[in-house]
Simulated scan of single mutants.
Amino acid sequence: MHIGEPLEPLDRSTRIYVAGHRGLVGSALWRHLSDEGFSNLIGATSSELDLRDRDRVFDFFRLNKPDVVIDAAARVGGIHANDTFSADFLSENLQIQVNVMDAANEVDVDRLLFLGSSCIYPKFADQPIKESSLLTGILEPTNDAYAIAKIAGIMQVQAYRKQYGRHWISAMPTNLYGPGDNFHPENSHVLPALMRRIHEAKEQRAPEVVIWGSGTPRREFLYVDDLAKASLFLLENYDDARTINVGVGQDLPIHDLAALIAATVGYTGTLCQDVTKPDGTPRKLLDVSRLNDLGWTATTDLHEGITNTYEWYLTHLDSLRKK
């Protein structure tokens, strides 16, 4: 198969390595691929394989010889974590993706999907953000280190396509949430952080919950199981050097998100804004017209997704409280 030729559907016996298969995205990918009948899924926990260790990554690929790779492995976090540990976020994410892609190329992996983040786009990009906005302006300074790493991943995919003729692609999801999310009180993303804070306020009968920032920045949220479905769709239908956005095409203010979570949790106290805390990017809505034109659209609305996520959170509460 050559670049430009139509892609063939993946055989359900295809050996697929999901890097980061225990994380939020990776576990959703594993669920969806299993549900779709893929019988040769390959995964390794971080204790079994440190993706920052180049020699071990190469040995793993030589041993397992996957046919397809989905790189969902990354060091991730919210504004506080990105801003505090910027050197770690840049260095570790570069190491992970370089090692995975170099090893995949060595064992002749022809189809690979690299998953990035919508934070790659300029802070003041025109809304909704088109893929062509990449590298046209300054990044949001609170997560620019992570963004630079992910931009490098896109460039690496493009370089392998150009030099080796690989059918490798990259996709940039919007803000993700769902079962398996990180609910750490300081290092998590906005939706799970708010969910934990509001739930604990309900338990403690606290009269108010403090929310970082003005509450006016607008964000788009994609249920992680929808991303898993989009990923398989792209592997079977998309073959282009340009990265492609994955989202829902709708956003809402952070304050409205907090109100929706409070209603789901059953919290009736006051939601207060701490305007001394950073807002981050004022708006980050992805233009998903290219993906929609290919024939894929997200199907899980935000209320349903938050309800499912909260149900998962409640069933895992004992383990999450220890983190």
Score class of each variant (00 low, 15 high):
D318W: 09
R242W: 13
L41P: 03
T309Q: 11
A171R: 00
E236W: 10
F183R: 01
Q273R: 13
D279S: 01
L227S: 03
H255P: 00
A149P: 05
K130Q: 14
P179S: 15
S188F: 00
L176Q: 01
A298F: 09
T307D: 14
A73I: 02
D226K: 12
A159T: 08
R62Q: 12
F89W: 04
A201S: 13
K123W: 03
R22Q: 15
L235Q: 02
G266F: 03
R218G: 03
F60P: 00
T142E: 03
L7F: 09
N187M: 08
A125L: 06
E92H: 06
T216M: 06
Q204H: 11
Y223C: 04
Y313Q: 13
Q163S: 08
R12F: 06
C272V: 10
S13P: 02
T315P: 06
E92S: 10
G137P: 06
T174N: 05
K202C: 09
R283D: 15
H2D: 14
L285H: 04
R52N: 09
V68A: 02
R56P: 00
Y313G: 04
I79W: 06
A201W: 01
T307V: 08
K130P: 01
S117K: 02
G137M: 12
S188M: 03
P207T: 05
A258Y: 10
S289P: 11
Y177I: 09
G4R: 02
L94T: 09
D279A: 00
H2F: 13
M195I: 11
L135S: 10
Q95G: 07
N82E: 13
V246L: 10
M172Y: 02
F85N: 13
L90E: 11
R218V: 12
H167N: 15
N143G: 07
R12Y: 02
L33I: 11
H189C: 02
I254Y: 00
N187S: 08
A193M: 06
A147M: 01
L176R: 01
S47V: 07
Y267A: 01
E48Y: 11
C272N: 12
D35A: 14
E311G: 15
H21K: 07
Y238W: 12
G153K: 00
H255W: 13
I16F: 07
A72G: 14
D239K: 09
D83G: 09
T299K: 10
N93V: 04
I148D: 02
T136W: 14
N64I: 12
I79G: 00
P282G: 03
F221M: 12
